[in-house]
Write a protein that binds this DNA or RNA. Structure first.
Length: 202
DNA sequence: AACACGATCTACT
DNA sequence: GTAGATCGTGTTG
């Protein structure tokens, strides 16, 4: 992994769909207190503006979604379903609420630490799904608003050749399913929507 | 103050 | 395949 480059604010301060697509294949890194945990992003979803009915900003500014209205390059992490957290990266200029939800990644560094946090999850699925991803990386809503351009929590480009990306409707939502705003590395096994239908053994 | 529900995951029938 | 866990948030009274 030579020449890993930490993504700068200018990367995040662009159209959300562009940022979302380019995030696939990047590495999400959590460097808490000496330990380093990371994964290769393989699945993301874009949530764009108050006009997107599935976006948390759809009701307008509230205390909860305030981070989405802030400057790009910060983490928006929220608590949901009474037990899980979901991690997003804020995009676009201050005042415009948008973010990219990190839905799945392939475990890279610190797998032992992830297993300690998710003892019952099969290794391949440690970061597969937004809830599992936050659990294994140790991310909670308390870290919402953290700057991704600092140390501790950031995303880096390890200079990989571009992955083959597929666009689909977003999952887990009722409204806004007409938009193809989910981006997946089609070659990855960690896809959280793993359709284990007939035929596709593997 | 009370209520309904959600960008989920797991366990069990 | 489906129900249960479990609680912050926004809405309504």
């Amino acid at each position: 992994m030579p020449r890993a480059k930490k993504l700068k604010r200018s990367f995040y301060n662009r159209p959300t769909l562009t940022v979302a697509e380019e995030l696939v294949g990047m590495y999400l890194v959590c460097a808490n207190r000496g330990s380093r945990v990371s994964g290769r992003i393989v699945e993301v979803e874009a949530y764009v503006g108050e006009d997107d009915p599935a976006c948390h900003a759809a009701p307008g500014p509230t205390r909860r979604n305030a981070v989405m209205y802030g400057p790009a390059g910060h983490a928006y992490i929220y608590f949901i379903y009474g037990m899980y957290n979901c991690m997003n990266v804020v995009t676009e200029k201050k005042g415009f609420p948008a973010a990219v939800l990190i839905r799945a990644a392939e475990p890279e560094d610190g797998i032992e630490i992830m297993i300690r946090r998710s003892p019952k999850t099969p290794a391949r699925l440690l970061l597969s799904g937004p809830g599992r991803l936050c659990r294994a990386l140790g991310l909670t809503a308390g870290q919402s608003g953290n700057d991704l351009c600092g140390d501790g929590l950031y995303i880096e480009d390890r200079g990989e050749s571009e992955a083959h990306i597929v666009r689909t409707p977003r999952v887990g939502i009722r409204k806004g399913t007409d938009r193809l705003w989910r981006f997946v590395d089609s070659t990855s096994d960690a896809d959280s929507a793993r359709k284990v239908t007939k035929g596709s053994s593997k």
